[in-house]
Design a protein around this nucleic acid. Structure first.
Lengths: 166, 166
DNA sequence: TATTGTTATACTCTATAACTATA
DNA sequence: TATAGTTATAGAGTATAACAATA
């Protein structure tokens, strides 16, 4: 019943097949992919009772932290780093569910504003509470590792151009 | 032009809105999600010239490390931790591309074996070389951080039940 | 009865291209 | 000309349910 770590196996394979110099990096990246998969499953599970996917929750959460509860479509696209059509898609569905509403920009006739409805704000708050309690509060990361993890991934993301400040 | 770290911003938001106890964990998990997104884009970019997606590459790589170059469908499903229909889907497409072939299991009439073709083996080797050189070899992780990252994620994955050995 | 795999179907998210409207 | 957003269309991965064949 003992299941060996498939990533450690892969690393050994890499080392034995002439890729020893990148084997550790491969193992780290593969572990990132797998960890993301596990976490995403937990997140989607926690959001399911709210009929929210992760992509839609992210948009809702983004709006709930915008002081005005309102954002232009293109701003949301840039902040979430997704394609404009993905935002259109997500807003369509959130709008059908009554969680957000579209409204015209007061001065620029080209842009559309997304606005949280009261229902959307309430749902965002509830979903966030469940995520915080059931997922983030029980992540399974050793608490003494978390800051180190944030530091390592932050360094990676800065190298990748994800942000420039500190 | 300076772009602040959106994850650090989110962490501050969490701390100011009554979730200080899970803010660090939230930031770590969000960073994992974002890091995976960046890495996946690089991987898919490197695989594009081979007309391979990551899911299909993973199956090809798995087969190329099986000593016989052959695996039952259900074994592949278990090792890749994906739904059986996802394997059927991937094999359908890889088979159309001439990279794998299905064959009946010699003794169990229920099971289907997936087998690398010569072309599939060659392509897997080329794609792996490009991934190793262009993605794993230039990951952007500080080399002194990689072992620590592997350790932290390994601990998480063990807690999550991803494996039981060491 | 249980297991293996396929099919049909559906639903995500994502992306390209063509288009309208506005700046 | 450039920008913002939508539409249509397509492709990816994933999942459930029903089914056939085999153990």
């Amino acid at each position: 019943m003992a299941a060996p770590d498939p990533i450690a196996d892969a690393r050994r394979n890499w080392e034995e097949h002439g890729w020893a110099d990148v084997a550790a990096s491969m193992a780290a990246i593969t572990a990132i992919m797998r960890t993301q998969q596990i976490l995403l499953a937990r997140i989607e599970g926690a959001l399911k009772p709210f009929r929210l996917t992760f992509a839609r929750y992210e948009l809702l959460a983004l709006l709930s932290f915008a002081r005005s509860g309102t954002l232009p479509m293109n701003k949301a696209s840039a902040l979430l780093q997704v394609h404009p059509t993905s935002v259109t898609n997500a807003v369509d569905r959130l709008e059908s569910a009554g969680l957000v509403a579209r409204s015209p920009h007061p001065t620029d006739g080209r842009t559309t504003l997304i606005e949280l409805t009261a229902e959307g704000r309430t749902l965002a708050k509830s979903a966030t509470a469940v995520l915080n309690t059931d997922v983030f509060g029980k992540s399974g990361f050793a608490s003494e590792d978390i800051d180190e993890l944030i530091r390592i991934l932050g360094s990676f993301r800065r190298n990748a151009g994800d942000f420039t400040d500190d």
